[in-house]
């Protein structure tokens, strides 16, 4: 059977918030060492990959690999019933389960709620993501990134990210005018969350749809810092670490200037 107990139930809430608007139904693959989830938005422009190691749980048992097809809207309703410090346990049978149970226990142990989720059949393509060397890595505060995406959305629906030397520029152009935000490399600041690290092998200049970046930044509560990885004419990677025990990675296809 599969059983996983999470002391800080809030983490599961945050993870779900970070994926549910992008992927309405997701296949949660559980094996002996981790839970993984991969899903694409319906237009196949963006992909989210969540990886949570067994160590994140205080109890984790998975005798046989199981895939749980979750309806995220439904799961979200259940998790809304949970407090951030509730203990959440996931349970499912071994062989092609039809349902998955969720048990919420309050911290003091005085209240227990349990729920059954009917699993859905998911017939989605899984994509193989090749190991890639990226030309540029930008590490910055997750909150700052969220802010930039939100601010620029007021001016246009796409952001041009250009990275050169020790700075990165986010620009957006729309009918009302243009907006530019530049961040400079500043690793020397005392607090890590205020620093910006730009690690550049080659300059890059790419354009992305802000709508998706705004969805990605819903993962900001999970991690203080976010890393953007870019290469010319390749998808952008936006990565949030889940403590020491996993990550959420988003991939976004760039906008392409075609000269046909």
């Amino acid at each position: 059977m599969f059983e996983a107990r999470l002391q800080q139930g809030g983490l599961l809430k945050k993870i779900l918030e970070a994926v549910r608007e992008l992927v309405s139904d997701g296949l949660w693959d559980c094996d002996g060492s981790a839970i993984t989830l991969q899903g694409m938005d319906s237009s196949h422009v963006a992909l989210v990959e969540m990886y949570l190691r067994a160590e994140a749980f205080d109890h984790y048992r998975c005798d046989r690999n199981v895939s749980l097809g979750m309806n995220h809207a439904h799961l979200s309703k259940i998790l809304k019933c949970a407090n951030n410090d509730d203990i959440i346990t996931l349970k499912a049978a071994d062989q092609d389960p039809d349902t998955c149970s969720l048990i919420l226990e309050s911290k003091g142990g005085e209240k227990t709620s349990d729920f059954v989720v009917n699993l859905v059949r998911i017939d989605a393509d899984q994509l193989g993501i090749p190991e890639t060397e990226y030309s540029a890595h930008i590490k910055m505060s997750a909150g700052e990134f969220q802010r930039i995406c939100r601010d620029l959305s007021q001016f246009g629906d796409a952001v041009q990210i250009s990275c050169s030397k020790q700075e990165v520029k986010f620009s957006s152009t729309g009918e009302t005018g243009a907006a530019n935000i530049t961040l400079s490399h500043s690793a020397t600041v005392d607090k890590e969350e205020e620093s910006v690290t730009v690690d550049l092998k080659e300059p890059v200049d790419l354009t992305f749809a802000l709508r998706f970046l705004n969805l990605f930044s819903k993962a900001s509560p999970i991690s203080e810092m976010v890393t953007l990885s870019l290469s010319q004419d390749a998808p952008l990677v936006v990565e949030y670490k889940i403590g020491d025990s996993g990550h959420i990675r988003y991939f976004l296809a760039p906008k392409i200037q075609e000269d046909e």
């Binding site: 196949h44 422009v45 092609d96 998808p235 296809a253 906008k255 392409i256």
Partner: peptide
């Protein structure tokens, strides 16, 4: 600019036997 598609960059993993078995079971 036209929006690119992820499936132009990443390849779909052919569904393995495990999945097929599952589909049959279903």
């Amino acid at each position: 600019a036209t929006q690119g598609r992820l499936d132009n960059f990443f390849k779909v993993i052919p569904s393995n036997n495990n999945n097929k078995r599952k589909a049959d079971d279903m």
